[in-house]
Structures are given as C-alpha cells and as structure tokens.
Write a protein that binds this DNA or RNA. Sequence first.
DNA 1: AATGAATGAGTGTTCATTCAT
DNA 2: CATGAATGAACACTCATTCAT
Lengths: 221, 221, 221, 221
Amino acid sequence: MQKHQQAIRERKKREKDQRIQSILAAAKQVFFSKGYLKTTMDEIALEAQISKPTIYQYFKTKDELYSSLMLPFLEEFGRQFERIEKKLTDRKYTSGNDLVKDLFNIFIRSYETAPDSLRVAHTFFQHQDLINELNPDTRAAISDRGKYDFELARRVLQAAITQGLLRDIDSFALSDILWGLFVGITQVMDMKATKHDQERKYLKSTLSLAEKLIIDAIVLK
Amino acid sequence: MQKHQQAIRERKKREKDQRIQSILAAAKQVFFSKGYLKTTMDEIALEAQISKPTIYQYFKTKDELYSSLMLPFLEEFGRQFERIEKKLTDRKYTSGNDLVKDLFNIFIRSYETAPDSLRVAHTFFQHQDLINELNPDTRAAISDRGKYDFELARRVLQAAITQGLLRDIDSFALSDILWGLFVGITQVMDMKATKHDQERKYLKSTLSLAEKLIIDAIVLK
Amino acid sequence: MQKHQQAIRERKKREKDQRIQSILAAAKQVFFSKGYLKTTMDEIALEAQISKPTIYQYFKTKDELYSSLMLPFLEEFGRQFERIEKKLTDRKYTSGNDLVKDLFNIFIRSYETAPDSLRVAHTFFQHQDLINELNPDTRAAISDRGKYDFELARRVLQAAITQGLLRDIDSFALSDILWGLFVGITQVMDMKATKHDQERKYLKSTLSLAEKLIIDAIVLK
Amino acid sequence: MQKHQQAIRERKKREKDQRIQSILAAAKQVFFSKGYLKTTMDEIALEAQISKPTIYQYFKTKDELYSSLMLPFLEEFGRQFERIEKKLTDRKYTSGNDLVKDLFNIFIRSYETAPDSLRVAHTFFQHQDLINELNPDTRAAISDRGKYDFELARRVLQAAITQGLLRDIDSFALSDILWGLFVGITQVMDMKATKHDQERKYLKSTLSLAEKLIIDAIVLK
DNA sequence: AATGAATGAGTGTTCATTCAT
DNA sequence: CATGAATGAACACTCATTCAT
C-alpha cells in the first residue's frame, strides 16, 4: 500500500527532523555556556539524550555542528536588515530617530528573546581563528554570510545618510562603530549579568541610554 | 677578580630576564593568536625556541603564564585612569572635550603601541568562563584588578559630570557604554585588520569618528 | 525476535565482563610485579591488549583500578574471619589447635590459590604512604576495610582466649604478632620463590612449621 | 710548601667526606620517608642543602645513591650475626633463652636506635623488583650481601640446634620464620606507629610478647 | 538508524640527568 | 668543585571520531 508506506516515511522524516532539532538545541546550550573548545561531544549527546554516534549521523564533525548554529542567526540578522532596507527604499522613515531605534531593536530584541543569538555575533568577532579551523565549505558559508550582513548594514546607513536622515558621516566607519557598540555593550552586559543577576535590569536602561546618545550624535535634526 | 665575577653574574641575570621575556613574547603571540585553550605549551616552547620544561622553570602552570600576560596590561590601564583622575582632582580639565580625548587616547595608544594589550581586554570580557578556570589565586588577582579598573573608570566619569564637564548621565551606564564601545570597535577593527591588512589605515579614522560622535553626545557645551 | 535480541545482549554483557576481567588480570600482573608507581597505564593496556582509553572506560583513575584489586581481597579476608568468629560463637571449637589451624588456613589457602592476594596484604602494610596518595574516597574504603579486618581478627582471638582455647595473652599484641608473622613469612617465601622456583616446595613445610610453633606457643593445653 | 699543600688537601678531603655524609643523610631521610620512586633528586638536594649536580658528582645515579644506603645496613646486620655466631662457637650461651634474646635484640635495638635500618630490611624483601633495576654491579653487591646475611642467620640457628640450645627444627624453615616474624611485626608496628603515635609504646610490649612466645616454642628446656 | 565500546593523537606537568660556566 | 639552567622522555588522563552490531 502506497499510502501506508508514505505515512511511515513521513513519520520517519518527522522524527529525524526532531532529532536534529534536539541536537541543535543541546549543542547551542552547551557551546554557548562553555565555549567551543571546552564543549565535548559527550556533553552534547548527554544534553540531547542521545548517543554520541547519532550526532555524527547528522553532523560530520564538531566544527560542522558548531557552524550549523551560527548560520541561522547570521541569516536572521540579515533578514532584519533587509526589512529595514526595504522600509528605507519605500521611504517609510521620516526621521533618523526611528531608523536608529529600529536598528537598536534588532539587537535589543535578539538579546532579550534569544541572548544566545548575540553570543553568536561575539563568537563571530572573537573567533575568526576558530572559524579558520572549520572546513573550507562551512567556513566560506559563514564568512560570506557575515560579510554580506556587514555590507548590508553599511548600505542601510549609507541610504539613510543619502536620504538626509543621518548626518553625513563615512558609512564604513559608522557601520563599524555601531557594530562595535552593539557587540561591546552586550559583552559588557553579559559579563555583569552572569555575575550579578540582578544587574540584568540595568541592561535595558543602558541600551536605552546608548540609543539616546547615538541619536544625539548621528541623527540629523 | 671581583669585577669579572660580577660581570658574569650580570650577564647571567640579563640572559635570564631575556629568556623570561622571550617566553612571554612567545606566549603572547600564541595565546592571542590561538586562544587559551587551543594553545599548547609545546607550541609556546617551540615559538620561544626552548624546551617545554624550561617554561615550567619560570612559570608554575599554564594558568600562571597566561595571567602573567594579562595583569601588566590591566595594571597599565589602571595607571592611565589614575593619571586622568588626578588631573580631574587637580582641576586640570577645562573642557569635557579634552577629557574624552584623553580617555580615547588610552585605548588608541595601547592599540597602536601594543595591539595585544587590547586583545587582553577582549579576553577579559569574552572569557569569564575561562577566567573561572584559572586557579583561585591568579584568578582573584585578575578579577580584582579588572573590577578595580572598571570602578575607577566609572569614578572618573562621575567626577567629570560633577565638575560640569560632561552631561548629567548615569555614570554606571555611561561607563559600560564607553567600555563596550572601545572593546567592540577594536574587535571589529581587529577582525578586519587581520583579513585585509590595508584596512588598518581605517582604524585611526574610525576611532577618530567614534571620538567625535561621543564628544557630540556626552560633552556639556 | 525477542530471543535473538536477548542472546545478543547477553553475549555483550559477557564480553564486557570478560574485558573488565582481562583489565583486572593485566593490572594485577603489572601492579604486583612492578609496584604501583612504576606501573603505567600504558603497560597495563599493553598487557591487556587493549587501548589505554578503554581502561578509563571502566576505571575512572589509576587509583580506582588499583583499589579494585585490593578491596575484594580484603573483603574475602573479612569473610573468612567472620566464618571463624561464627564457629566460635557457636562453640564449634573444642581445641585451640583447630582454631589456629583454621586461621593459618585462611592464609595458606589464599597464598596457594591466589598468591597475589597476599601481595595485596603486603602492599597494604608496606605502602601506607601510597595509600595516602589514593583519592579520599577509595582510600577511605580500603582503610576502613583494613581496620575492620584487623579488629575482627583481634576479636576472634579475644573470644578464643575467653573460651579457654588459647592462653591468656593480650589480644591486641597477639593479633599484631600473628598478622606480622603471616605477612612476613609470605614475603620471605615470595622473595625466595621468585628467585629459585624450586624452593616453592619449602613453602608448605615452612608454613606448617610456623603453625606448629604457634600452636605450641599459644594454645592452652 | 709541602705542608701547606697537604693541609689543604686534607681539608678538601674532609670537606668532601662531609659532603658525602650530608648527601647520604639527606637521602636516607627522604628515601625512607617517601619511598624510592616518590623521592626526587631535587628533594634530596634541598634536604642536603646543596645543588643537584653536586649529588651527581659523588653518585652516578639515583640507583647508586639508593644502594649506597642499603649496603651499610646489611653489613651491620651481618656483623651482629657474626658476633652471635662467635659467641656460639665460644660456647658462651648456656641457654637458648639468651640466644633468642640476643637475636631479638638485634632487631629491637635497630628499630629503636635507627628505625630506618629496618625499613631497609623491608625494602630488601619488598623490592626485589627495584633491586633488579639497579646496575649489575651494585645490585650484585647488595644481593650477595643479603644472601650472606640470610645464610649466616641460618648457620647460627643450626649451630644453636646442634648445641642443644634450641629444639631440633629444620634450620632453613626456622630461619625463614624468624626473619618473617621480625620483618612482619615491625611492618605492622610501623604502620600503626605512623597513624597513632601514642601506640609506639605498644611496640616494645608486642616485641617482648613475640620473644616470649618464640622462646616457648623453640627453646629446648 | 542508533548505540556501546574502542582508540589515536594529544595535553599539561614532572623528573633524572647533563651542560656551560 | 659547585651550580643555575636546560631538556628528553615519560605519564595520567581526555576527546573527537570510528567500528561492530
């Protein structure tokens, strides 16, 4: 019976996907809490409640598993910037104020809903060395994606400047500054947060302040 | 002959110091290019062109060697901030402008003269987990020093605000933002620099721009 | 098929047990011929014809492997003494003669059936320093068990004295003397045996003589 | 000037001898408290308050240093037995009682005046393996000396039997039993002593009891 | 497809021994 | 002769990865 066969195949597919998801979830958990090198495959397997070789069924190497985590986040960042770029192209922004807020929101939201996602950005900045260890294919994928996001962000800023929303500032430098600011602040926050959990409340106010300062500094009034 | 003996002793001392320096240089090189965990003592020994046990003659553990690199930098940062604090106490600053420039200069100069030193700051922010792996004593030393620098920086900002040099902004949040900005920008710069060496020239202009923006944003006029 | 599955599972279990046994056998061999410190895990692995990490699959540390060898023997000794204590409580002994013979038999039999077992006792007496090197848990286990055996033996002697089977001698001192005698003689025997294998035949007659002398000296007639 | 020269040479010789003695003293201390393998040359040098290479000036290897310690003790034992043998030949013993007491005294005294010396006997019994590691020459020296002592002891017993001082017992077996008894008891004592120092007082009474029992068992009345 | 079990290739650290002075 | 300094060779233990089933 065709139908029966197909139903089985579907269930198998579903189970497989689910297994992959559980591996990724476990990997994310462990990688981001202990760092790439201190993380062992044993630990991921334990967390995912499966056996080690099963991980290898789906991910050729530890490297590949690691990068499987980075790409989606980088892509999500890209999508967010694309959304903003679209809004710009559509002339939806009437003030630089709103634009800057949208940009900040990408980070604030990701930090709040999925703090791990920002740690990806950290990793990306900190561990080029590690990225260099990945096998050429996965590495190229990540690197390309990162560059794309970078360039995209710059283009957004340039467009905003061209539209007179922001002051006339070198967009390359400004882009670097904003990326650096986001990455750096979240790192500092992160460090404090792990130590004094109650300081997490400062996070939002600090980011708000940063936003205000940046608006003061770059928005054309 | 006394003189001869002493000359020998001096040469020995010099050679010893030199050896320690060469170990530190090699360690710095390898640690900062590969990270603490990926770095092996074998590799440091190779780089320093000595045998592994010789390293252990001068540094009890990998930990100790590692922190021997961090502490001086953290201390240097502290000294710089203390210098600025003194200038503030002595009412040497007549404009917030100069203060911000001095603060930026701490980082710019250290980035230029000893780019590794900033990587220390990165490490400090990124790898609290790693720091937690150090043995309690060395760890306490580093952690204390880091906290001290952090608090010192905040005090400097607060004093500047009190003196009317900067706008009235929460000094804790501002301190976090500035640290984050410095750390983040240098990371971004660093990443680009390693990849496209010619981009190093952008560094200065980017930092200058950041400085200008911050001055616009926080200096009381 | 259930049966097939189960058969496989059973074989696996058997193989696993066998592997553990082969590790223990190899460890016993090497430990007792070279001593704890001179023994390397590599050598045990070689002797057991497996790889080093496999040993670590079954035994967490060298310590644990080592004590896995000692504990069973100490326990066996304990059981034997308990058997004799029971016989005493049940008033099964009508002469001290029989009791002493039973005591000697514990050692004679263990020396004959498992000469290594006595070497364990030697190790126990000789290397308190070594035992102090074991990790606290395993060490406590061994030390406790040893103390228990010691006290048990003394209690047995005291009971025999109380029942008028042995002369009225301080049971603590007597216990020490008998332990020392057993341990010492087997050591001497052992030494000779390794050197001139043909001397092994003297063993039994020597132990018999020791038994006779002790009977003469302590049994109440 | 001849005299002056010679005086210098003598002082040098004296200093050299003294240095050797201080090395031996330090070595004895450390070897017997930590065991051969756990002892490091560094530690001996530290204890002797000289530098490591200086030890190597006088002792080719760690092995040789170690065996330099054993030989004198074995020789001392030999001398004591020879003294007793002489007394026997001279028909100085009128009762086996005295003979046994003299034999025990060799051990009791050495245990009291120089407990280390007995540990040499232990080492000798326990570590044939170690002895096998020594270089052929030193090893032969020790082994020969040990065998000589052994045989000497047996001859003493045989003579005593022949003279009607002791019961007619196989002298080989008896010798083994007595050696074993001494070695074993001191080991047991030693173990207890290290743990509960106050138990050291039991030592003498235990050895006395052992002596009494042996007299009961083997002296011809 | 999933897994218990196995292992090659490292890691940091130690130590007997040897140089150079 | 004495020594500060150096090192080759080990050693316990780990981990990514692969078999056999």
